[in-house]
Design a protein around this nucleic acid. Structure first.
Length: 264
DNA sequence: AACATTCCCAACCGCCTCCAA
DNA sequence: CTTGGAGGCGGTTGGGAATGT
């Protein structure tokens, strides 16, 4: 890649970056990540953009804890496929390989701890719930019907995605457990101060955009430029002499600019 | 209340595969 | 056929939040 690695941003994504990425993925599709990285003006690698999209921004994602059913399925599939996380994830709609990997890691760690405790002879109070089950757990008759009642489990996440809306509110930045925290954390963003534009709102607007204003997903290699019908004044110049030069100088747009463009 | 430990998960890294040139 | 770039994948890490002492 011809990208200047020193200029590349790393670390947690800001709300504003999310916003930009969502916009460009919506426009160009979720395949040409290097292109999107270049075009969007995000100082991120294509890989980083892809990861952010796949693991976090994709609207098809189910948020929240895995349901007992999903947990059982993960265990089952893992015994079948091993650490082929993406393969397992494909069978769990709305779940990412990363999520499953993380779950598995936690699961096996808990399991190891329980074993350790057991072998050291001290009975564990948490043995009553299924975290003590190992990979054997997929044959545990109680597993499918009984939700995990780990005292650490976050009650409001336990629906395994039903609370989507609330959780989406909390998705503004990394690591939100609830919308309250989201707000406090988001307020820390210096560059995203133009307003708290939640992902939920972004998607709402993008849906509108889809319906009546924009032709989404064009092939950047065959098309000259997308035909945007929303406030074109926002786009001051498109250059496309080569892939690298292609840029929208006026980005990043503020949320207000963006949404006002949408509602015109 | 303060500190320590554990949990959780987003994001990075490096390797692998695929495919166009 | 070879090669280089892009995307995909699995492993790992870092840090914030939750929980325990």
């Amino acid at each position: 890649m011809g990208q200047d690695d020193e200029m590349m941003r790393k670390g947690p994504w800001t709300e504003h970056e999310d916003f930009q990425l969502v916009f460009y993925v919506h426009m160009f599709g979720d395949r040409r990540w290097d292109f999107i990285a270049n075009v969007s003006g995000l100082k991120r690698t294509g890989k980083s953009c892809r990861l952010r999209w796949v693991n976090y921004l994709n609207p098809d994602l189910k948020r929240g804890k895995l349901t007992p059913n999903e947990e059982r399925l993960v265990l089952e599939l893992h015994s079948k496929f091993g650490n082929r996380w993406s393969k397992i994830a494909r069978r769990l709609p709305g779940r990412t390989d990363n999520e499953i990997k993380n779950y598995w890691r936690t699961h096996t760690r808990k399991e190891a701890q329980e074993k350790k405790r057991q072998s050291s002879g001290s009975p564990s109070p948490s043995l009553s719930h299924c975290s003590s089950c190992s990979s054997v757990c997929n044959s545990h008759p109680i597993m499918g019907s009984m939700p995990l009642i780990d005292k650490k489990e976050r009650n409001f996440y336990d629906t395994g995605g039903v609370e989507m809306l609330t959780v989406m509110k909390g998705k503004n930045s990394s690591k939100k457990k609830n919308s309250e925290k989201a707000t406090s954390k988001v307020s820390n963003f210096k560059e995203g101060q133009e307003g708290h534009y939640s992902m939920e709102e972004i998607w709402k607007d993008l849906d509108l955009l889809d319906e009546d204003t924009i032709t989404p997903v064009f092939d950047p290699y065959t098309e000259i430029a997308p035909s945007l019908t929303w406030d074109n004044s926002l786009i001051t110049s498109w250059t496309m002499g080569s892939q690298e030069e292609f840029s929208i100088d006026s980005f990043p747009l503020t949320s207000q600019q963006f949404s006002s463009g949408l509602t015109d």
